[in-house]
Design a protein around this nucleic acid. Structure first.
Length: 881
RNA sequence: GGGUUUAUAGCUCAGUUGGUUAGAGCGCUACAUUGACAUUGUAGAGGUCAGAAGUUCGAAUCUUCUUAGACCCACCA
């Protein structure tokens, strides 16, 4: 007999247990095969960890991700699959560099240019390393069963080789090109950013109307207008029918007379402003595209620091923010300002990192072409053969549209297609220092792209780096040995089973992985995409430093334990939906963790020699038969639910089973019936195994306490449901027995009788067999001194009564009953049942009986019969008073 | 401007293809307590399922509209 400590103290077990797991090597599937816990020919189950950025510390978003993925992984490992969960971190080029630049400025008032590329990179790397160490250890605190022997970094040497290889291949296929196009330029960070990294902020702005020759044009940005010499309107706009495409006119503008040309283009919205606009191709995306169509001159007006160029003449060198009012003033003096709209709402483009205001510029950058046709070198994608001509966009559309990837929840297919169907070329190059250097070299006009520097003198490498999502896009296979397509890991674990991540990075990352994987390795990188929601505070607000409402997962782990923290993030949240988290919720699951511990503790006090491998025993007593059936039911539910990624409802069902059925009912009954030790032993083992994926620490702690320090719950087999037929014994416990006990307890509470006081009761029933065999249980749980089971009995004045199903219960409260109170209680009960009986009779005599399916009608009929019987009994009890 | 999503007990959420007298946890009320557990047990109160109309024998569930919130996408100068 083994006795556990009275309360579970997570802090005393967790770190030690994690170390034991890690030392065992079982996080590594190869070791599992080697040591015989996994069959060599078992199916693989692999997941890559969405690599956390090396910019900070673990937050609740990471915690949710780690909790959910660890459940998937532990479940599949216990199911005997060759399970790999591959860890790594992301260099997050722009985010990391921005953070270090900010620290540098705050501490030393220096910019990266002040200290130079080399020393700056050294300090970024130092920061990244420290941040990496922190976050990786925090992942361990979460209990994540990651195979650390395979840990990768998006910017390490192996990944860099994968990036260079991928870049060159796509360049050779014409999918990566260098071109002068309009980009989002952040003058603050001095880099381009992709469309997806631009946030929009609504802002009230002044909207000016200026006289431009015979037209009135509207603009919110007069400072861009210096070079404008084209005026454009919709071809079908009647108001301007007299002006023909190609007409020219002289007009007075900011810095004197200019010659302007009339253009007609359908991109102009006649409803907006005056329906006439001038074109500024260098600083506006719409204008740029129009200029391309009409082959117009393009001229830069604003430099890369946001200052006006010499074309602005007297305003040259001024920052645009300062110049704007002065330009308006000048136009006003010239009499060209027609009016100002002060209610205009402008959507300001802002860099999501660093918050610089985006200034469109035309620059020579590296791009990925999503419309370019190419021949698939190698394809294992259903519906696409090697050699087929496709585009990157088509690959993205095909994989999801033809059902080769399931997105959970399904509704996220809409934003997926919304993004994919409107895909634009992807600007790959960044003027950042931290990141993968673009593998391109220049000599004069010559360009060389390769995995390594070209032979010969005079070549200089492109100073720019790649968008961080380029290397992230290769993640599912660059972590498995690619570009070596023969690598054992790649062959054994790609494609992965499921990609679990937050819905907020569906477009950033998931799409890029599908694109890169289908192109480079001809495989769909995962079968399922599971998207979790954001964790918000208890009021539904985003957690942020400014609001001071951050719940730090590590604080919660320290206070309530990892298992409780994990449960609070998984139960009560649906995939794709945001969840509200409060400390009380976590505390609630801490209580449950302790409950589980104490259930184990109690069971162990009643098992002489616990057996680790114990099969399904035969239940002899009523309670045993019932709980074994109940247990098989929950095993089935858990197994199916986990396979279907239904973590919340599995967790909830397990908790209800454990706390209500097992602890509150079964164990109380077992105290009376003295259940067999084998049954207790089986229940204990099975309960721990079912909970292990959710609560790895407490289950492992109990397991080791019981079976020895060298035993590993983690690699035990997940329970498999046996068929357990229902018989009348089981239905009796499930229904009547528990209801009767509750009814007696309820009567007692209602009468204000102390729970300790023993009473006598009489039960009137037709079928007395089950009652006889459970008399001891009823007496103990309902605290009765004597129980009479009979077919007929008379009610006396000292008795209160209740009806459960077809059973009548009379409880003798010795001493006289307050007849009025008893009447009131019975009347209340009758007023509950009577209207139901009436409604039910009406329903069954109406069209319902003709139209509803027979099974449904029968069911309703049975319910009516039961209610009627109950009503009659209640009425006779009432009249006997 | 398009699209998604949420609305069920004071709070957080379940509620499978329409068929229960609508559930759970927390909180609340009353009572209990040296026998696994106060990080506990027992009993209870609490809901016109946001509103309106419709489909149906039958609607929390399906349809339409309305209201309120959250989010995503979009080049309107």
């Amino acid at each position: 007999m083994k006795e556990l400590p009275k309360a579970y103290e997570p802090a005393q077990y967790e770190d030690e247990i994690y170390k034991k797991w890690e030392d065992s090597g079982f996080f590594n599937p190869d070791v599992c095969v080697e040591k015989g816990v996994t069959a060599p020919d078992a199916d693989p189950f692999s997941i890559v960890l969405p690599p956390p950025n090396v910019t900070g510390t673990l937050h609740m978003g990471h915690a949710v991700m780690l909790a959910i993925e660890d459940v998937m992984v532990r479940y599949n490992r216990m199911k005997g699959k060759k399970t790999l969960w591959l860890p790594g971190t992301d260099h997050a080029a722009i985010a990391t560099q921005e953070k270090v630049e900010r620290i540098l400025w705050e501490k030393e008032k220096k910019t990266r240019h002040d200290i130079g590329r080399g020393p700056f990179l050294t300090s970024v790397e130092k920061f990244a390393q420290e941040s990496h160490d922190t976050i990786v250890n925090q992942a361990r605190k979460m209990g994540a069963s990651l195979d650390w022997s395979r840990e990768a970094y998006t910017l390490d040497e192996q990944r860099n080789f994968a990036v260079r290889t991928a870049f060159k291949r796509m360049y050779d296929d014409g999918l990566i090109y260098r071109g002068d196009r309009i980009v989002n330029w952040d003058p603050k960070m001095q880099s381009t950013v992709s469309n997806i990294e631009v946030d929009r902020k609504e802002e009230k702005a002044l909207f000016y109307y200026f006289q431009y020759g015979p037209f009135v044009i509207g603009t919110a940005r007069p400072e861009t207008k210096f070079g404008d010499k084209y005026v454009v309107m919709h071809p079908e706009d009647e108001r301007y029918a007299e002006y023909k495409h190609g007409d020219t006119f002289e007009c007075e503008w900011i810095n004197g007379q200019i010659t302007a040309t009339v253009l007609k283009d359908a991109a102009v919205d006649p409803e907006f402003g005056t329906g006439v606009m001038t074109i500024t191709p260098w600083h506006d995306i719409t204008d740029f595209e129009m200029a391309e169509r009409h082959n117009l001159d393009k001229e830069q007006v604003i430099d890369f620091d946001g200052k006006l160029l010499p074309i602005a003449q007297e305003f040259a060198g001024m920052h645009i923010a300062d110049a704007r009012p002065k330009i308006v003033e000048k136009l006003k003096e010239k009499g060209l300002l027609v009016r100002v709209d002060e209610e205009y709402v402008n959507s300001l483009a802002i860099n999501s990192r660093g918050k610089g205001i985006i200034e469109p510029q035309i620059m020579r950058q590296w791009w990925m072409d999503v419309d370019k046709e190419f021949a698939m070198q190698h394809s294992e994608i259903p519906g696409i053969k090697s050699g087929d001509t496709v585009t990157l966009q088509k690959l993205l559309q095909h994989t999801v549209r033809d059902g080769h990837i399931d997105i959970l929840p399904e509704r996220f297919e809409k934003p997926y297609f919304n993004w994919v169907d409107n895909l634009r070329d992807w600007c790959l190059s960044r003027q950042l220092w931290y990141g993968h250097r673009i593998p391109a070299w220049y000599k004069g006009e010559e360009v060389y792209v390769g995995t390594d520097a070209p032979e010969g003198d005079g070549w200089t490498q492109d100073p720019d780096t790649l968008d961080t999502w380029f290397s992230a896009g290769l993640w599912t296979f660059s972590t498995l040995g690619w570009p070596d397509a023969e690598a054992a890991d790649f062959k054994g674990y790609h494609p992965t089973a499921v990609l679990e991540t937050g819905y907020d990075i569906l477009t950033f990352w998931v799409i890029r992985m599908i694109m890169m994987s289908t192109y480079h390795v001809g495989q769909i990188p995962f079968k399922t995409v599971y998207l979790h929601g954001m964790v918000r505070d208890e009021k539904g607000k985003k957690m942020s430093k400014n609001l001071g409402n951050i719940i730090n997962p590590l604080d919660m782990i320290e206070k309530y334990g990892t298992d409780a923290t994990r449960l609070s993030l998984m139960i009560g949240s649906a995939p794709g939906n945001d969840t509200k988290l409060s400390e009380e919720k976590i505390a609630g699951y801490r209580n449950f963790t302790n409950k589980l511990w104490n259930i184990s503790r109690f069971m162990l006090m009643n098992i002489d020699a616990p057996k680790k491998d114990i099969g399904l025993p035969e239940g002899k007593t009523l309670a045993d038969k019932w709980i074994l059936w109940k247990m098989e039911e929950i095993v089935t539910k858990a197994d199916n639910g986990l396979a279907a990624y239904d973590f919340s409802s599995v967790g909830e069902a397990l908790r209800d089973f454990t706390w209500n059925d097992l602890a509150d009912w079964y164990l109380e009954m077992a105290k009376v019936e003295e259940s067999s030790q084998d049954v207790l032993n089986y229940l204990l083992n099975t309960m721990l195994k079912l909970w292990h994926p959710f609560m790895p620490f407490v289950t492992e702690a109990v397991w080791k306490e019981v079976y020895g320090e060298n035993e590993m719950m983690m690699v035990e087999k997940f329970p498999e449901a046996k068929n357990c037929a229902v018989d009348t014994d089981i239905t009796f416990v499930e229904g009547s027995l528990r209801e009767m006990i509750t009814a007696i307890r309820s009567l007692r509470a209602d009468k204000g009788i102390a729970p300790g006081k023993k009473l006598s009761a009489t039960v009137i029933a037709k079928d007395q067999g089950h009652l006889e065999s459970s008399a001891a249980i009823i007496k103990q749980l309902a605290r009765l001194e004597s129980l009479t089971i009979t077919a007929k009995a008379e009610k006396t004045d000292s008795m209160a009564s209740a009806v459960v199903g077809s059973v009548e219960i009379l409880v003798d409260f010795a001493g006289a009953i307050d007849v009025d109170a008893e009447k009131a209680r019975l009347e209340k009960e009758i007023s509950n049942v009577a209207p139901y009986v009436t409604a039910q009779e009406k329903k069954l005599s109406g069209p319902f009986a003709q139209n509803a399916p027979e099974a449904v009608v029968n069911k309703e009929q049975a319910k009516l019969a039961e209610a009627k019987e109950k009503l009659e009994k209640l009425q006779s009890q009432l009249s006997s008073l």
